[in-house]
């Protein structure tokens, strides 16, 4: 372990200066005390662009310590380019062990997915959030949406869902599906597929959400009621597939569709790359087990 003031370290431990960490830490505590409420915070410029995980990175930097084991995924996969880049960043600036193993990680940073393996009490899940305001698509003004949250006036959201039902016969939102926290604050779960929404409810882990560009932090403590909005006659439902994972045969995980040629041939594979690998190691096999994609993973750094 390199002491934080060792001369060879050009930046502070975990990149952020201590004052910035304190400011973010205070925001996290307020976010936990008011579940689902968006706390404005003095987001800083990070060495990666806005929109590429700066909120999640700032949250991680504010909480991470050398005893942590860090996992970072994008679209459920550990080997997507941006996840690799962020994982490298923390390995470098925070002296942490990194892992692809969901069960081993103490901090899991994610863009667009929650791992399939149920989270545990010793884990903190950090979501990268592009747009923290669930109502932004319906009302562009922050002054208006902040007032709606202040007085819990969420009629606009229900009208929009109702319009979707009357236009398409169902609620059209497939990702970033809005949720109510403890029946008080309407919250964006970040652009996770609605498939993952049920995992937010009564979670064992602390869930933190960071939006760097929009400068907001919010949180869902463990064992908090998270309800996906719906109507009695149009109940919330998650995505399902007729196919199972081509590599591991999983029938209940979120699947990515991979085109194999220009003629419409395709395969479906788990979006959660570690979940899939773990199942294959345990001897599960799908209809295309042994396919090139199976071997495409590089060894962990």
């Amino acid at each position: 372990m390199t002491p934080s003031n060792a001369p060879e370290r050009y930046y502070n431990y975990a990149y952020l200066d201590e004052q910035t960490k304190r400011m973010i830490r205070r925001s996290i505590l307020k976010a936990l005390a008011i579940p689902g409420y968006q706390v404005p915070f003095g987001s800083r410029e990070m060495p990666v662009p806005y929109g590429w995980g700066t909120g999640g990175i700032q949250l991680t930097a504010a909480i991470i310590g050398p005893e942590d084991v860090y996992k970072c995924i994008d679209q459920g996969a550990d080997d997507t380019t941006n996840a690799v880049s962020i994982r490298r960043f923390f390995a470098k600036v925070a002296d942490v062990e990194t892992t692809e193993d969901t069960g081993q990680a103490t901090i899991i940073q994610s863009r667009h997915r929650i791992p399939e393996k149920p989270l545990k009490a010793n884990q903190v899940m950090i979501f990268q959030v592009p747009q923290p305001e669930p109502l932004r698509g319906l009302e562009p003004r922050e002054t208006e949406t902040r007032a709606m949250h202040a007085y819990a006036e969420y009629g606009l959201q229900y009208v929009s869902l109702y319009e979707s039902v009357s236009a398409y016969g169902r609620i059209a939102t497939g990702a970033g599906y809005p949720v109510m926290i403890e029946e008080r604050y309407l919250m964006s779960p970040s652009p996770i597929p609605k498939f993952d929404n049920p995992k937010l409810n009564d979670s064992e882990a602390v869930l933190l959400f960071g939006a760097g560009r929009e400068k907001r932090i919010y949180a869902v403590p463990p064992h908090t009621t998270v309800r996906s909005l719906d109507f009695d006659d149009y109940p919330f439902e998650v995505q399902t597939w007729e196919q199972s994972c081509a590599l591991c045969g999983s029938e209940d995980s979120y699947l990515d569709e991979v085109d194999l040629d220009d003629a419409g041939q395709k395969m479906f594979v788990c979006s959660d790359s570690h979940h899939c690998a773990e199942r294959r190691e345990a001897g599960h096999a799908g209809p295309m087990a042994g396919h090139a994609l199976d071997q495409s993973k590089e060894p962990a750094p």
């Binding site: 662009p49 679209q75 560009r213």
Partner: peptide
């Protein structure tokens, strides 16, 4: 800095939401 980052973040994979 905010605008450029967010416009260009569309280069990141979005296949999970696209699948939905």
């Amino acid at each position: 800095v905010e605008a450029s980052g967010f416009v260009q973040h569309l280069k990141l994979p979005h296949y999970v939401d696209f699948q939905a």
